[in-house]
Design a protein around this nucleic acid. Structure first.
Lengths: 160, 160
DNA sequence: AATCGAGCCAAATAAAATTTGGCATCATGA
DNA sequence: TCATGATGCCAAATTTTATTTGGCTCGATT
């Protein structure tokens, strides 16, 4: 699937304003509502876009603790990776998990109601591969720049 | 603003299905559409929810490089922090930035078209406080668990 | 008991989404 | 060159949704 200027524009707008109406979107990209809807449906079907999420202002909803962890596995076998990944995936408090190159194997972002509960999760992750996991915890102090979408302009500047 | 079970349910549904129609949402939480819309508006006005974002499947849209960085400042003055933060905020390729406790000062997530461009951004960040910034780059290999919302059930279990 | 405010629902209205049909363009192959 | 078919557009009709309105109930307050 190749993207023309209009479809890129749709992606760019939709990624930051997921609840925009189709009519407004159509106006912004210069299409009729029906054509615009067609494009959006195709982008969704091709899985270029979605799911649609809302940011919650967690600070206003409840008390919580957010922690970013670096994780190293002493045993870097495929099985060890798989075990750790599936543990991360199965625990809802682990809200994000990446594998990376370099001095760590994983980055995790974990959100828990309090430190005691965070400690439980940390212990659980350590127990996945006993004695073979090294986790460093970094409590989030401020969210300087929350994620608000990818820099499509910069990423697509070649292929204008 | 205190949240009853219904409003929590609204937040929970909306954070994962931002484009759900008000009617469907009303059905799911057991309210009439008008009451449901009232609640959503109030939650929005109180900034408990929003903005609304779409996930893009970047892999299908363009080639890109994603990097997670740990950053330490040698000079941990308020001014140094501020300088670094505003550099992070002003560059769209830095898609996320946290300040944290522990052995690092910042975590960054950076998305660039390619390694050459990533290197430019890295250099720019180093130049913010010359000789006083230590950055470790970790190229993202896989996104094991993409962010799909906070674990509201776990976070609010006390206050049912 | 009267009053006020909050929050609900049903129903009416306004707006948006979706479908439909027809037209233009373009690539393909006869 | 001239069908043919596929694609993508628009306008208009239709269906669905959002939004407004008004009236009702429940609790708290006076």
């Amino acid at each position: 699937m190749q993207l023309d200027r209009i479809s890129r524009n749709i992606l760019s707008i939709l990624q930051q304003e997921a609840r925009i109406t189709n009519q407004d979107l159509a106006n912004r990209v210069g299409l009729s509502p029906s054509s615009c809807l067609n494009r959006v449906r195709k982008l969704e079907e091709a899985c270029l876009i979605g799911p649609y999420l809302s940011n919650l202002n967690l600070a206003k909803i409840c008390r919580s603790v957010e922690v970013i962890c670096t994780v190293s596995l002493k045993d870097q076998s495929t099985d060890a990776f798989r075990s750790f990944q599936s543990a991360a995936q199965s625990h809802p408090e682990v809200v994000e998990c990446y594998t990376v190159s370099g001095s760590f194997d994983f980055f995790l972002r974990i959100v828990a109601p309090d430190m005691a509960r965070y400690n439980d999760i940390n212990d659980m992750l350590l127990d996945v591969l006993p004695g073979m996991v090294n986790i460093s915890s970094h409590v989030v102090l401020t969210n300087v720049k929350p994620f608000r979408g990818y820099p499509l302009d910069a990423l697509l500047e070649q292929t204008l």
